[in-house]
């Protein structure tokens, strides 16, 4: 059953009002409203989470005529209303709009979510108010521009590390000396093909020999944030895999000693507990 909030509790609320920009009296398009509201809630959630709060946003008011949605943050564990989150969110949007610089402790996901929300305001009048605060925060072209600037100032989403990836050699492009590359298919992600760029002419014959076979590719791996496989590899070397028989290997294996009385589990535990 919907919870009835007292007037005191509404002070912790945050309200979104969406109207058509050209005719505020005309009902707003439902899809546009829901898109704005969804992105707004996403930005509130990542902001609360980035502030160390585990809250859900309960609907306190939803009016059809003016496309108004009021939400109140409620601590998931205790059920107590988180008083300051709504005001803080609005204050930070205002701060970014004024200075173009987000607070240092604001995480990049929150800034991106805020920008995504602001981008839904195109062709709409979008206004935010917090609790009883009489000043409202309109989402304007200036807000959008400043949030884009804030995103532009964030550190790159790509990072590079040295490493080796195993995959099956697919498309090979070796005719243009200025731009030699091949594609590597990853067995664990068959839909993924990693572009592997190389400059060493000596690799061409090796690559021809290994076409459609498994190889280890070593070099600089370019990762995009939140992705587990690299998007690009700057190849330093490739290695063909030898033919191996598992049965032969199992008979050839040489033991790895552990201290007397310790099996592998106790030995590994002793190493890790020593940290």
């Amino acid at each position: 059953m919907a919870r009835n909030f007292s007037s005191e509790e509404h002070k912790a609320g945050l309200t979104l009002v969406v109207k058509p920009i050209d005719d505020p009296d005309r009902p707003v398009d439902a899809e546009q409203f829901l898109q704005a509201a969804t992105k707004w809630l996403a930005s509130l959630s990542s902001f609360a989470s980035g502030s160390g709060l585990h809250v859900r946003w309960e609907i306190a008011e939803l009016k059809r005529s003016s496309a108004l949605l009021e939400v109140i943050p409620v601590d998931i564990r205790t059920g107590i209303i988180a008083n300051s989150v709504a005001k803080d969110w609005k204050r930070i949007v205002k701060e970014i709009e004024t200075t173009g610089i987000p607070p240092k402790d604001l995480n990049s996901t929150t800034i991106r979510d805020m920008e995504q929300f602001s981008s839904t305001a195109n062709g709409l009048s979008v206004v935010i108010s917090a609790g009883e605060d009489p000043t409202v925060q309109p989402i304007t072209v200036s807000t959008q521009k400043r949030l884009k600037e804030a995103i532009g100032a964030l550190p790159s989403d790509e990072y590079i590390q040295e490493g080796t990836i195993r995959g099956r050699l697919a498309v090979l492009n070796s005719w243009n000396p200025e731009e030699r590359w091949f594609r590597l298919r990853i067995p664990l992600a068959p839909e993924k093909q990693v572009r592997c760029a190389y400059a060493d002419e000596g690799l061409i014959s090796d690559l021809g020999d290994t076409f459609e076979k498994l190889v280890d590719v070593t070099g600089l791996l370019h990762y995009k944030k939140d992705e587990i496989w690299p998007s690009v590899i700057e190849v330093r070397s490739i290695r063909k895999l030898p033919e191996l028989s598992l049965s032969e290997f199992l008979t050839m294996m040489r033991p790895i000693p552990t201290p007397d009385g310790m099996d592998s589990v106790k030995y590994i535990r002793s190493l890790r507990d020593g940290e």
């Binding site: 990072y159 590390q161 944030k225 939140d226 992705e227 191996l244 033991p255 790895i256």
Partner: peptide, 29 residues
């Protein structure tokens, strides 16, 4: 280290060359 005191990494390298093995890099995620 192997039982005879020699380094274990050649044995590990051989083991890792089985085509069914995928070395999983420790990346940012």
């Amino acid at each position: 280290r192997l039982a005879d005191g020699s380094a274990a990494h050649p044995s590990l390298e051989l083991f890792l060359q089985f085509p069914f093995i995928q070395l999983l890099n420790s990346n940012r995620e």
